[in-house]
Design a protein around this nucleic acid. Structure first.
Length: 374
DNA sequence: CGACTTTGACCTGCGC
DNA sequence: GCGCAGGTCAAAGTCG
């Protein structure tokens, strides 16, 4: 694996060097940047604990500059109480007279009782997934069409934490555990718990973005939820269609584990979008270093060159697509860098490929530039 | 004794 | 308005 990795890395470096040789010198005016640069999308993924590394400052500066000029931002930070976002969400939940015009509020105004959810499907022999959080069971119910009882848990890390989760075995395959998370934690999380928390935050971001996505964007990525998506993969339906739900599928019937992040919406205005990746194993996939690399490589290598262009176009213009991807990557990275990720704040840029050849490696190159240890 | 689980009752949204 | 199903409450029981 290491050998393959170094080989690929060297290959990337060659491609990048080639690009530099062929690229004209860029103007110092950021607004007059080349076409390639103008296509960049900024993704800011989970930063559960504060830190002050040089890289973090540099990334913040870059991110800030970019947002200033382009107005594009996708934040998935697990913010503390003092940082505000969670307060806004809680306030909007508690107070029906909340008049903020944030994306979440727009969503909640249209769906007052439909909190976004993140559903995780995983092969699990234990009663619940060990997601690093403390939970207290407060109810159990036999749901229709499933003989296995559905258990209801709430987060007990903080007495006021609104996060809840439902745990139920899949009716089709009892070895699969479906865990559905709802809400945003109002307290700092242990590193091992940031994975799902980030995905949950991303769900809110995804759905709020999607609720206001312009029609042209949806036309790029919208696919029927029962048919193969843009990248040629299928993805599962959420457990509950009454709530908008992101599904992270960590199960796979074949050798490669498919990892999908899809957003599903109530059928009345359903325009689901999804991303799907591949990994190497079903068990503990997110903690495998190989999985992290493979997440990027395999998805890109398997997508045909023709699809590369479509993929980049979709990601560029569809906020829900970007959020789903961010959730997927955060889910993986958050776990793997456990113990090392204090203060982690990485900045992931997607560039418009100058050719389909570069399209396949653009993500990985950018990703590795931020994670040289991988 | 406190934390947690179990379980029947109750509440609420939704379709008819 | 009624019935159904999902979700929550809270008293009683269990466990360490």
């Amino acid at each position: 694996m290491i050998k393959d990795y170094h080989s690929l890395k060297m290959h990337f470096n060659h491609i990048i060097q080639d690009d530099h040789h062929h690229q004209p010198k860029k103007s110092t005016d950021p607004m007059a940047a080349s076409d390639d640069e103008s296509e960049f999308v900024s993704l800011s993924l989970g930063r559960p604990f504060s830190g002050d590394s040089k890289r973090e400052k540099m990334i913040k500066k870059e991110s800030s500059n970019y947002r200033h000029h382009h107005g594009l931002e996708l934040g998935l930070d697990c913010k503390s109480k003092e940082e505000g976002d969670n307060d806004n969400i809680r306030a909007s939940q508690k107070s029906p007279k909340h008049h903020s015009t944030s994306g979440d509020d727009v969503f909640l105004q249209h769906n007052p009782s439909k909190k976004p959810r993140v559903s995780v499907r995983a092969v699990c022999n234990t009663q619940t997934l060990n997601d690093g959080c403390q939970w207290r069971k407060y109810g159990q119910k036999i749901a229709k069409r499933n003989p296995c009882p559905r258990a209801y848990y709430r987060c007990t890390v903080s007495s006021s934490c609104p996060v809840r989760k439902q745990v139920q075995r899949c009716v089709d395959d009892m070895s699969i555990l479906i865990t559905t998370y709802e809400g945003t934690h109002d307290h700092p999380l242990p590193p091992s718990a940031t994975t799902i928390a980030a995905a949950t935050s991303a769900a809110a971001a995804t759905l709020s973005c999607s609720s206001s996505t312009s029609p042209p964007c949806h036309s790029v990525s919208a696919t029927p939820s029962t048919s193969p998506n843009l990248l040629g993969f299928n993805f599962p339906r959420a457990a509950s269609q009454s709530h908008p739900t992101i599904v992270l599928d960590l199960t796979s019937p074949n050798h490669l584990t498919k990892f999908s992040a899809s957003t599903l919406f109530p059928a009345a205005h359903s325009t689901p979008t999804s991303l799907n990746f591949s990994s190497s194993s079903a068990e503990n996939v997110s903690s495998s270093p190989y999985y992290q690399r493979n997440l990027i490589f395999d998805s890109n290598m398997r997508a045909s060159e023709k699809h590369d262009q479509k993929m980049f176009d979709a990601i560029k213009c569809d906020p829900s697509f970007r959020s789903a991807l961010a959730a997927a990557i955060t889910s993986v990275v958050g776990t793997n860098v456990e113990g090392k990720n204090s203060g982690l704040d990485f900045h992931l840029s997607f560039s418009q490929p100058s050719s389909t050849r570069n399209g396949s490696v653009g993500w990985a190159t950018s990703f590795f530039s931020k994670f040289p240890q991988l």
